[in-house]
């Protein structure tokens, strides 16, 4: 087996000052192989962005971390300062939701790209812009972020993330602030670039449809715990965890016109109010007494992991 680009195992994160002994991320496991596209989905407050930050080695100093985050087989937390800096700068590229706040508003796009390329890149600012589909390079290089459209800015951000030839790109809701047609273009671009450059992609999103278009494997999170993971099409066609099934039943879709949607009752709690055991149990129709114990993430069919004592029955199709 090849070494995964990113391997997260038994990862728990606490913020002692704010939430005391509560694991805001609780025993997370996630592997991404070279050139693989993996999605993390869940509602806001499920810890998916925090996991993205942990994977990028960008957790704030107030975080108390246990477990392993390995990059190309080496534990990030045993690395020296220099090595970690190199990892964050060159090994991992990051694309966030809001390009306007990610870019420096006072610097031209050219200056920002040159600054990154100078640190070592197989490409040039011009070539990077062409790669992300901004062919009017002269104008874009001279422009400041506010002079570009939202879609153009997001492309610039992707160019910056790719500048140092990373092995892993983490894209956290990269298209949420964009219009549908622009969103479709940016998603297509991400997929094209990924196929060309073979970087591994960690895609964080709340949109199941978008995830199904981009990721081959999906990890579903709820309240800081991984509830289920496996091949994306399998998970969406035959969800096993009641939370995944609930998300699907609540989604408005373009394909099927439903008369009413089935919302999941209640809402995601703040970490201070997480219940013990399975954290979804208070919103779950299948919950019984034993759910007060924490279900372990265990194999459930080929390539799938599940953490649930009372999953959705296998033959049952989703509503």
């Amino acid at each position: 087996m090849t070494t995964p680009v990113l391997s997260v195992a038994n990862l728990s994160v606490r913020f002692p000052k704010r939430y005391g002994a509560i694991d805001v991320l609780d025993n997370i496991a996630l592997d991404i192989g070279p050139g693989e596209r993996v999605a993390v989905v869940g509602e806001s407050g499920c810890g998916k962005s925090l996991l993205g930050l942990a994977a990028a080695d960008l957790l704030p100093p107030t975080a108390q971390v246990t477990g392993q985050i390995s990059f190309r087989g080496k534990d990030v937390r045993t690395m020296g300062r220099r090595e970690r800096f190199a990892l964050r700068g060159a090994g991992i590229g990051v694309v966030y939701q809001d390009a306007l706040t990610s870019l420096n508003p006072g610097m031209t796009v050219g200056a920002q790209l040159r600054q990154v390329c100078r640190l070592g890149s197989s490409s040039t600012p011009e070539r990077l812009l062409v790669d992300v589909g901004l062919t009017d390079t002269g104008r874009v290089l001279r422009a400041k972020p506010h002079q570009l459209s939202g879609g153009q800015r997001q492309r610039v951000l992707i160019a910056l993330a790719l500048a140092r030839d990373p092995d892993l790109v983490i894209a956290d809701e990269p298209t949420t602030a964009l219009d549908v047609t622009v969103q479709a273009q940016v998603v297509a671009l991400l997929r094209e670039l990924q196929e060309q450059h073979h970087f591994a992609l960690l895609f964080v999103s709340h949109d199941l449809a978008l995830v199904s278009e981009l990721a081959s494997r999906t990890t579903v999170m709820y309240a800081g715990q991984v509830v289920e993971s496996g091949p994306t099409t399998e998970i969406l066609a035959r969800p096993r965890h009641p939370y995944t099934a609930g998300l699907l039943a609540a989604s408005v879709s373009l394909e099927e016109r439903r008369e009413t949607l089935t919302p999941i009752p209640g809402h995601v709690r703040q970490p201070g109010e997480f219940v013990a055991g399975c954290r979804f149990r208070e919103r779950c129709g299948n919950a019984r007494d034993d759910c007060a114990n924490r279900p372990e993430l265990a194999p459930d069919g080929p390539g799938r992991l599940l953490a649930c004592f009372h999953p959705v029955a296998k033959e049952e199709e989703t509503p």
């Binding site: 549908v180 998603v187 449809a209 099409t233 969406l236 373009l254 394909e255």
Partner: peptide, 26 residues
């Protein structure tokens, strides 16, 4: 609404519909 969705006439409507992400379920 159903007509606009199932038989869009204007090119822009077609573009919008084509761009919407679709849930692929195996």
């Amino acid at each position: 609404t159903e007509e606009v969705y199932t038989a869009p006439r204007h090119d822009y409507t077609k573009t919008l519909l084509a761009a919407a992400p679709v849930l692929h379920r195996g």
